[in-house]
Structure formats: C-alpha cells, structure tokens
C-alpha cells in the first residue's frame, strides 16, 4: 500500500477551450490535512471536483488510493466513491429528511444493516460531531455551522479513507469556524483519513493543516507547511497570508487608463 493517497502529476483541465488547470502536481499522504488555497475563481473547486471524479481530467495523471481516475467507468467510480466523503459548501443536507435520516442515508443505501445497528452507528457519528441531541431536528431548524457538522457526520458514515471539504468555513461565525476547524483536525487524526480542504480562510487553515497548496490562475503558485508559508517572502504568498490589497493580485480589474476613460486627457 502506497503511502500517498492522492497522486497528481501534470494535471490539466479545460472547460471547452478555456484551460482552468495547467499542469498541477500534488500529493497527499494518508492521515494528512491538505489545504488547497487561492483566490476565488482560481480553479480550487475544479481541482476538488476532479479528485471526486465529477470531472474528468483533460490530460495528466490523477490517482486516488492507487486507482487512476481517468479510466474509470461509472460502476468503478461509484465503488471508489464509497471510500470518499465530501462536505459541500453549505452542507447540502437533504431538506426532506431529519438529521438522523440524513446521516443514515449512506448506510441505508449501501448496506443491509439491521435498523438497530444503523441507529447505533448514526448516533455514534452524530456524537463525534457533538450533535447527538439534535437527531430529531429537520435541516431547516439547524444553524449554518450545525448543518455543516451534520453533513460531516454524514460524510464519515461509511468510514471513508478520504474526505473532501468544499469551503467548510464559508459564512461561519468565528466560534463555529474554530469548532469546524478543530473537528476536521480531530476526525482526521482519530479516523486516520486524509482530508483535502478547499478554502480561502488563511488564518484558520494555517492553524490546523499539515501542508498548503496555493492555486492561482491554474498553476500551483506556492506550497509548503504553514510555518514555511508564514515565513515566506514570495510576494503572492505574502499578499495572501497578510490580506494586502495590492501585490501580484491587483485590486483593479484590467481597464484602460483612468484618465482616458473620464476623458480628462483633452
């Protein structure tokens, strides 16, 4: 068994003719939390979709748990996905089911476990995210942070070896944000899974992840451990880590000279 759960070499992806990712190299070891960061629209979510198999790479190698994703048919992909969990941006809980049924959903779909065992497993997973007491509630009764924790319980229901997080911190208050961050770290450590976190919340990420990849304009612009990045003098990383307005990523959208446009030149 290879130590690397995810191996990506020279991966490219294009929507039609527009190249979104150009030659990405990325590896994730078992038991690691990897953050994929970058500015909005930089291709982070696309990269996550590729790992999840929703998109097929245009060229390059993408291996998850030793399986080459580009050659998979639907059945094989679904087989592989049973070993993956994914947390969507706003949880994506099934709104017509209770919290309990949401977490039980993957168990009921993929196993023939008796109902008492499903119940025990669901309560166990809910307990792991601290929401055992909320199993009767409907998703509409949950706060944003709670919904995401329920979705996390659902993602780990089948005990996956890889969990993908799409913007897990977006729109959370500082307390929920800290709780979610700690939860990701703790679950990764206790379950021995690999976590890939797509986010642009730099401070929270640097606190809890093992390794960071910066994706910008389709390439890996920078990478390193949190300590390396904090100390980095590279302009892009520096701008990102410290949230500065001007730097390699300009504040202004490309435009003709201001004076020309206001017709002040005359």
């Amino acid at each position: 068994m290879s130590d690397n759960l995810i191996e990506i070499h020279d991966l490219s992806f294009a929507y039609g003719k527009r190249l979104v990712l150009k030659g990405i190299d990325l590896t994730a070891r078992r038991g690691q939390v990897i953050a994929i960061m970058g500015i909005s629209g930089g291709g982070k979510t696309t990269l996550l979709r590729l790992i999840g198999g929703s998109l097929k790479p245009t060229s390059g190698v993408l291996k998850v748990d030793g399986v080459d994703m580009s050659g998979l048919d639907r059945d094989a992909l679904y087989q592989l996905r049973r070993r993956m969990g994914m947390l969507f941006q706003f949880g994506a809980l099934f709104t017509d089911m209770s919290v309990f049924d949401n977490v039980a959903f993957p168990l009921r779909e993929h196993t023939d476990l008796p109902e008492e065992m499903v119940r025990d497993l669901v309560l166990m997973k809910l307990n792991a995210v601290g929401l055992r007491g909320a199993h009767d509630l409907m998703p509409s009764e949950l706060s944003g942070g709670m919904a995401r924790r329920v979705a996390l319980a659902r993602a780990i229901a089948l005990e996956p070896s890889l969990i993908l997080y799409d913007e897990p911190f977006a729109g959370l208050d500082p307390i929920s944000l800290g709780v979610t961050g700690n939860l990701i770290r703790r679950l990764t450590d206790t379950l021995g899974v690999t976590s890939i976190v797509v986010t642009h919340d730099i401070q929270e990420s640097l606190r809890m992840v093992d390794y960071v990849y910066f994706v910008s304009e389709g390439v890996i612009a920078a990478q390193g451990t949190p300590d390396e990045l904090r100390a980095s003098t590279e302009p892009f990383v520096h701008q990102f880590v410290h949230g500065e307005e001007n730097g390699p990523v300009p504040f202004h959208y490309p435009a003709p000279p201001y004076a020309d446009e206001l017709e002040l030149a005359a």
């Binding site: 996905r81 706003f90 994506a92 099934f94 709104t95 979705a151």
Partner: peptide, 21 residues
Amino acid sequence: AEIGLMKATEQLAAMEMMAVD
C-alpha cells in the same frame, strides 16, 4: 421546484458523491 432546489443546494451532487445515482 423540489428537484431544482435539490440541485441548487447541491443535494443531488452530494448524493452522487455518496455513490447514489
């Protein structure tokens, strides 16, 4: 409306990621 909302809130995508068609 129901299916459109399930799609808009990524419930269908989540289902697909759970290997459920």
